[in-house]
């Protein structure tokens, strides 16, 4: 039963991801991206990670996509024709991508996951959010702190690149 749901969500996620790239209107792309994110959130729930699913919906579907749509509206990005961007590269690219996917598929079909299951059994994950919180502030403390610096840089970088320089005008 769960597997059926997995395939439904997975196929929908991939299909909407392809639609994001293929759609000509950027607003349509954004809507497909929302669908894709929701499917991924559903996959997280199947993986017993409700916190991640909620974060996915809040942050990506909520905040990021709203900003994205705002940017599209403010910049007034027009429709683009696919042919303008991709000239004759598709002749080479599409077979290459299909070949790559086939090779990956063969490898994945041959592979068997032999690793022992981690410490997080279904029982341990009943308090999902609590487990994540504890892990973030114990085992993953160091990368967690580095991420805070990373976000600071993202913030400063955005401001530094957008802000008009005052010093250079005199």
């Amino acid at each position: 039963m769960e597997q059926i749901f997995f395939y439904i969500f997975a196929i929908l996620a991939v299909a909407s991801a392809i639609a994001v790239v293929a759609a000509k209107n950027p607003v349509h792309s954004a809507v497909y991206l929302i669908i894709c994110f929701l499917q991924v959130a559903a996959l997280f729930i199947l993986l017993r990670a409700p916190f991640l699913a909620a974060a996915q919906v809040f942050i990506y579907v909520g905040a990021v996509m709203v900003l994205f749509l705002f940017a599209v509206l403010v910049l007034n990005v027009g429709k683009e024709r696919l042919g303008e961007q991709i000239h004759h590269q598709s002749v080479i690219v599409i077979p290459a991508v299909i070949l790559l996917l086939l090779m990956m598929g063969i490898l994945v079909a041959k592979g068997r996951l032999t690793a022992p299951m981690g410490a997080f059994t279904e029982k341990a994950l009943e308090k999902n959010t609590e487990v994540i919180g504890k892990m973030l502030f114990s085992k993953y403390l160091f990368p967690f702190e580095v991420v805070s610096v990373l976000l600071l840089i993202a913030l400063i970088g955005a401001v530094a690149l957008v802000m008009k320089e005052k010093g250079s005008q005199d």
């Binding site: 993953y140 990373l150 840089i153 400063i156 320089e165």
Partner: peptide, 30 residues
């Protein structure tokens, strides 16, 4: 952080910190 890391997660975070800084630095002549 990258050179000192003993874990893939840590390594990735260090890499992103470095890469993000470089994206900004390369574009600094706006």
């Amino acid at each position: 952080v990258m050179a000192a890391s003993n874990d893939l997660v840590n390594l990735y975070v260090g890499l992103e910190l470095m890469a993000l800084s470089f994206y900004v630095l390369v574009a600094i002549r706006t």
